[in-house]
Design a protein around this nucleic acid. Structure first.
Lengths: 336, 336
DNA sequence: GTGAAAGCGCTAACAG
DNA sequence: CTGTTAGCGCTTTCAC
């Protein structure tokens, strides 16, 4: 049976049209070996005319690698995973790598299935990501390098790249202290979330360093929402009308807090300075005043993870353990 | 040379271990042909023990299809593309399809490059998406089926699946009219954006149907931001303190507007009813009161696009032209 | 029932 | 300089 017109032209079609052998076409198109210039251009022309696209599958099969990495996210690209993925795509794309995307939806079964599928497809490496820095079950030993980013694996043998909650919160405190603030509150999300106690630790550390203390009555834990921030504003004012600084566990909380304060006649930053966490553009800019906040540099995390993974694919050893990348402080009007 | 221990076991390794031929292993593992039960189980056991993973590349090469579709996004998975992608992943994943993700970043050169790469990789089909329903240049005739979703292609020969701006806005108006509202304003984003005039048309159509009119002085165009919504609130009150309903071009605008009204002592929905657009959880829920809004059903769009693409991959013809899927109205407190 | 052989599209090694 | 050959891992006839 003759080749169907609908299937893409192969290297043999090009060879036939250029009047050479397949091997020669390969050399011509990949710039390998010694070819007469005229031959080379004849081949290029033929390839061009036929709209030849080299079959990546065949190459991969031969080479034993696919120039593809899998991304396994446990969170259907939410607000936090998205910047991470952009960072990953960023550096992977630069290295002619493609990314196979899998959304595990936090379901272990689904995840296992995807991992198998990615292995079947012979991806060169795997990035695992998820919504929060909380530990997640390791995928275990796999025949390809794996990097966890944003989420951390519960196996210290794995490499996890995440941000530093403690340092981030401390950054906020240091800034407020430098501005002369003395009486601090910490308003954050659910206690069970990894970040909540750690950011508190950061606040604590910053205050201790400045010879100040954190009144346990001024530590308020609730949810990651604006509504909670507004509620907390009232509670804080009742608890201690003299407080002059609040470190928040998220920008949503911070924005709610700022709204609550303003509506209670408390000036931000005149009376109370407020620092958020996340640097989430929508919250931070719409807030009145705009929020000073801690930026966990998620995109950088993604870039870093991808870079490490590429190194590992190139044969370098993957470091082990959890890497805590530093956060940055972004100054806006809420902190005075 | 003997096989390196690091490279994954092949079907021949399994064959050797089970004491059969590669062909038999293939049949056993894929349930094809007639095999003795004992042979089949011997093979399965051997495969299991060796941790054999069938090489998907080899299959694809043979079968001429990869069970992979490309997603080309012009917008680094932003707020609007994300739900679309979830929808795509949703239906593709169900059909054992994988997705190769490419972020064109709106750069035509980058896009061309990615399209070539995807063709080289022999994806079975391609989904093109982008931030807004505005028309974008077609990728032209490709050897594989292509579906545009959310964005629309400027070539009517392509299939584009997007939502219905006009119908969506009209939905909002009808609801407000049914609640007895009579004097309407329309506050939206930049006039150059596709949706802005079309949603206005929808407002117009709804009002005309109810024997009402849209005062051109109560059409305010600005940006897609809360700040603009707050500004617009002031302008509207100055323009016509008697207005009792506002349809907004986005939830951000609507939320800003609601804040502006409240702070000006205007009750929502008591004095003025407000309807947003997007059904963006964060905005809609944090707003006081929570926003009634138009939901463009982006996830459904993604699912639809993926379904159409799968059909086309299965040999069915792809419809042409722009499909406008209906929006839904989500009722909350801002509309009375 | 099972094995041997051919071939998917490509590259690399070796002839000529 | 260019052509031929073998083979990446798998499936699929076709013999036996």
């Amino acid at each position: 049976m003759t080749r169907s017109q609908t299937s893409p032209p192969t290297i043999r079609d090009v060879a036939a049209r250029a009047g050479v052998s397949p091997g020669t076409v390969s050399k011509a198109l990949n710039g390998n070996g010694q070819l007469r210039d005229s031959t080379r251009s004849r081949v290029t022309a033929a390839a061009e005319e036929l709209g030849f696209r080299p079959n990546h599958l065949a190459k991969s099969l031969l080479e034993g690698r696919t120039y593809t990495v899998g991304i396994l996210t446990s969170d259907s690209f939410g607000r936090f995973t998205t910047p991470v993925m952009v960072g990953i795509e960023d550096t992977l794309g630069a290295g002619r790598m493609s990314t196979l995307l899998c959304d595990g939806r936090g379901d272990p079964l689904r995840e296992r299935h995807y991992v198998q599928e990615l292995l079947n497809r012979r991806v060169d490496g795997l990035v695992v990501t998820g919504r929060r820095p909380d530990p997640r079950p390791s995928l275990g030993r796999l025949p390809i390098p794996v990097v966890y980013v944003l989420v951390r694996s519960d196996d210290p043998e794995d490499l996890s790249i995440t941000y530093d909650d403690v340092q981030g919160a401390e950054l906020g405190v240091n800034h407020l202290v430098a501005n002369g603030r003395k009486r601090f509150a910490y308003v954050s999300g659910p206690a069970r979330h990894w970040s909540t106690p750690r950011r508190r630790d950061g606040v604590q550390r910053g205050l201790t360093g400045a010879g100040l203390t954190l009144d346990p009555n001024l530590v308020l834990l609730g949810e990651w929402s604006e509504a909670w921030g507004r509620t907390a504003a009232g509670q804080l004012l009742r608890q201690d009308p003299g407080l002059d600084a609040v470190v928040c566990g998220s920008d949503q909380i911070a924005r709610g807090l700022v709204d609550g304060f303003r509506e209670a006649g408390v000036g931000v930053p005149a009376d109370v300075a407020v620092v958020g966490f996340d640097n989430w553009d929508v919250m931070v800019e719409a807030s009145r005043p705009p929020l000073t906040t801690v930026d966990p540099n998620l995109k950088t995390l993604g870039r870093l993870a991808a870079t490490r993974l590429m190194d590992a694919i190139d044969g370098h050893d993957l470091p082990r353990g959890v890497r805590h990348e530093p956060c940055d402080l972004v100054l806006r009007q809420s902190s005075g």
